[in-house]
Structure formats: C-alpha cells, structure tokens
Amino acid sequence: MESVIENIIEKSLENSYSYAEYRNLVANLAKKGASTGPEQNEALAQYTQLNNSRMKRWDKTLKFSDEAIAKIKSVDHKIKWVVLTESWCGDASPALPVISKIAELNTNISLSIILRDENLEVMNRFLTNGSMSIPKLIAMDTDEDTIVATWGPRSMKATQLVEEYRAKYGLLTPELKQDLQVFYNKDKGQSVLDDILKLLPLK
C-alpha cells in the first residue's frame, strides 16, 4: 500500500513548485485579485493577498537559533518534503517560510510544493481527522523510498489554541482566525520549527 502512495506522490511532483516558484505564483495571483484552486471569489482573493504579504514579511524576518541551524545541518541523508497547500490558506503563510528555510540550510532536504485541489488523490491519503486540512507536509526518506513522517496543518501549540477555542465555543469563528494570526506573529515561526525538528533524523 505504501508503495502505491509513494507512486501517487511521485506522479504529483510532475506539476510541483519550488518555494521560489510558489512565491511567484502567489504574488502574481495577489496582483490579479485571484487565487489558486478551481473556486474563485473575492474572499479567497483577499486571503491570497494577505498571505502574500505575510510570507513576504516572514521571508525577510525569520530567524533560527544557532542550535537549530546546527541540528538542521546535521541531517546526513536525503529527505524529500512534499507540501500540499493553496494560496488562500491562512495556516500555510507562517509555516511555508519556516519549511523552506530549513530546506535551504541543508542540501540533503529537498522541498516540493503541490496544490491540494490539483492533487486530491494525494490529499485524500493524508487527511487530518477526516478533513483535507492544509498545509500538509509529507516527509520521505529518499534512500529508503519510504514515508517517514507527516506534519500539519498547524503546529502543536497552534492546534492546542484551536482545540481550546472549539471546546469553549463549539465552533471555529472569524475571531479565531484573527487570534491565530496574533499567535503566529508572536510565535515568529518557532513552534513550527520545533515541531519539524522532531521529524528530522537528527544525530
């Protein structure tokens, strides 16, 4: 079964993006007032514009500690990361810059980005509580050709915030989205970094 999933993922990479290519895609869509995906409306276009601004800021300001950098650079065999996302996804805008920066620090880690709605066969293999939640990172060991881990759609700390909100109010509201963005701005990518460091084969 796992080899079937790996073959599906490999096929999806024929239409994948590097991080730089994805950033260009989102920036161009933001200028045009559009978004990725088959559905086009004003709300998704506005989310795309917001995410483009947020990623631009994260790309410039994101910082890792010397300890984190040393851990990332210690990975000594090939890891392939595939991330499912869409331009309008609010949880992707703080996560993708962190994931990209990690991959930039070690040539053993490759990153490919694919769009969820163009790759539903992949997405449906990696649901979160039955939902097509994004971003979703799939980590593969290139040498062994196996899936070794997944991550997403949020860091453990952000997920805890969402679950506490759901327990208190029974549903997720626009106010929660605002609270999440406040959390992401204060967190500065650290919770995503902490989570993903645990997925790496560190010495």
Rank of each mutant, 00 (worst) to 15 (best):
G130S: 08
N119R: 05
D76F: 12
E118S: 14
T128S: 15
T85V: 01
S65G: 04
K80S: 12
R116G: 08
T128E: 12
L127H: 00
T107F: 06
N119Y: 06
T85I: 00
K71L: 14
A70V: 14
E67Q: 15
S112C: 01
V75R: 03
D66T: 12
L120I: 13
N129Q: 11
D141M: 03
S155K: 09
G152Y: 08
I72F: 07
V98T: 10
A103D: 00
I114W: 12
S100R: 00
S74H: 12
K101M: 05
D141T: 00
K80G: 06
L111H: 11
S74L: 12
I102T: 07
V122F: 08
M140C: 02
D143Q: 10
M132E: 11
L137K: 11
A95N: 11
S155V: 10
D145I: 10
E104F: 07
T142K: 15
I109L: 14
A158L: 13
V162T: 05
T159F: 14
E86Q: 11
H77I: 03
V82C: 05
S155G: 13
L127M: 12
E104R: 06
V75H: 04
I69A: 01
I113W: 08
I109A: 07
L105R: 04
V83N: 04
L84D: 14
K101Q: 10
A149Y: 00
L111Y: 08
T150A: 11
K80P: 05
N108M: 10
P135C: 03
N108P: 13
T128R: 13
D143T: 02
K157F: 09
S100W: 07
L127R: 08
M140T: 00
S133F: 01
N108H: 15
E144I: 09
A103N: 01
L96D: 00
Q160S: 05
D143K: 08
A139P: 00
L105H: 11
T128M: 14
W151Y: 08
V162I: 12
N129M: 10
